[in-house]
Amino acid sequence: MTIQNKRIIASILFVLISFVCASQMPSVEPPPPGTPPPGLPIDEYVLIGIAFALFYGVRKLLLQKANNN
């Protein structure tokens, strides 16, 4: 079996599995919609995460630059 045939068979199986998953109906009725959740506040942990990401990125760039020289 060539790679092209394997890709075609894999694509067909993927499409068929997608149809099976989409056609299944839930067995119970969904609960009635409630009130929407309140907006989530952006707290200090987001700022700490951004600071950590910046520190990590700068550190990786400096280490990569040091390894290339």
Rank of each mutant, 00 (worst) to 15 (best):
L47V: 15
S11C: 09
G57N: 06
P26G: 03
K60S: 04
S23Y: 03
F19S: 00
C21K: 08
D43P: 01
P37S: 00
I50F: 12
G34W: 04
I8V: 09
P38N: 02
K65D: 02
P37Q: 04
N67S: 11
A51Q: 05
N68L: 14
P30E: 02
N69K: 13
I48R: 06
V28S: 06
P30M: 03
F14W: 14
L61K: 07
S11V: 07
S23T: 10
I8A: 02
K65R: 12
N5I: 12
Y56E: 09
A10K: 06
Q64K: 13
A66M: 13
M1T: 15
L40F: 10
I42S: 00
G39V: 14
N67P: 06
L13F: 03
I42R: 05
N69E: 11
Y45S: 11
M1N: 11
I17M: 03
A22V: 08
I12D: 01
A10E: 10
I42V: 11
G34E: 06
V20N: 02
V20S: 02
P32S: 12
G49P: 00
G57Y: 01
S23M: 11
Q4D: 13
A53L: 09
Y56C: 02
L63K: 05
C21V: 07
P41Q: 03
N67V: 15
G49A: 05
P26H: 01
A10V: 08
R7I: 14
T35I: 14
I8C: 11
R7N: 13
V28N: 07
L54T: 07
I48S: 08
I42E: 04
K65E: 02
